[in-house]
Amino acid sequence: MKEITAKIQETAARLLESGQVDIFIGWQKGEFEYNTKPFFAHNVEEAKNLVFDEYSIHNLSNYLLKFRDGHEKIGIVVKGCDSRGIVRLLQDNQFKRDRLYIVGVPCPGMKDPLKRMYEDSGFAVKKPADSEMAEKCRHCIQPNPVIYDELIGEEKPPLLKGERFKEIKELEAKSYDERYAFFEKVLSTCIRCYACRQVCVACNCRTCIFDETKPQWVGRETNVSDNMMYHVVRASHMAGRCIECGECERVCPVDIPLMLINRKLIKDVAEFFGPYEAGIVYEEGAKPPLSMYKEDDPDDFI
């Protein structure tokens, strides 16, 4: 990891020095050994603060949305899943490829700094057991960046062990009532902080439907019905677009298993319209399956 950090610093310094990029997005260390956090280097001097370590878990591609209306050239470090986020943004026409210098780093699997922050707070908090690696990384099918200008480090094997959609199949096997009760239970705890939406790179609508006031589509009460409406609508907007980075579930302060919903959609989209994996390959002009119509699209689930 130290070598990767050194190379990232070197690359960032070179790009900032030459003016090839105006801002370089990576990570820096926080107050504790585990709270690595997003960092924006603006000059060569600041490039020295960049790090890449076992806690570089954040999907930085979401930060590009902050710059989508500007003209800055941006350097950015991406792992496998994050790079799929870049493809998402390019495919959604939210960013121009030529404004980006992408530094890819094959990912060995990360630990979650947020979880460590919670655990060390002394507060009564329970985060799902992670063993060594973050929950989201246990499901990783793409540790290696799929789009980059420069690759640092050796390619890594996928981290997913066992059957990919095991949990989904278990859920599917349950009765309608059981499933409803399950989702009612987990979604009733939602506090509507919208962190899942805000960290999501696929949530790149300029005006989110939940912020729309004319008309207002979803009520603002924190109760089961409005919460479910929020999550169901958001999930359906993710179908065929979720790049499986798992950030939504990771940042949720009440541990809603959002990736269960997203993986179900990934599985269904692949079955109905696939094979398809969102953001795995970038082809100019290519669209996700639900953004185009084909005469032989299946419709027997309607």
Binding site: K37, F40, K66, A195, Q198, Q216, R220
Partner: peptide, 28 residues
């Protein structure tokens, strides 16, 4: 400009803050 760079404007900090008190008024 710099301090706000990492902020993704979710509402976690405001909702778990014991002093934050901003509210909306809506109708059902």
């Amino acid at each position: 400009d710099r301090l706000s760079e990492p902020c993704q404007t979710c509402g976690i900090c405001t909702y778990i803050c014991p002093t934050c008190h901003c509210f909306d008024i809506q109708v059902k």
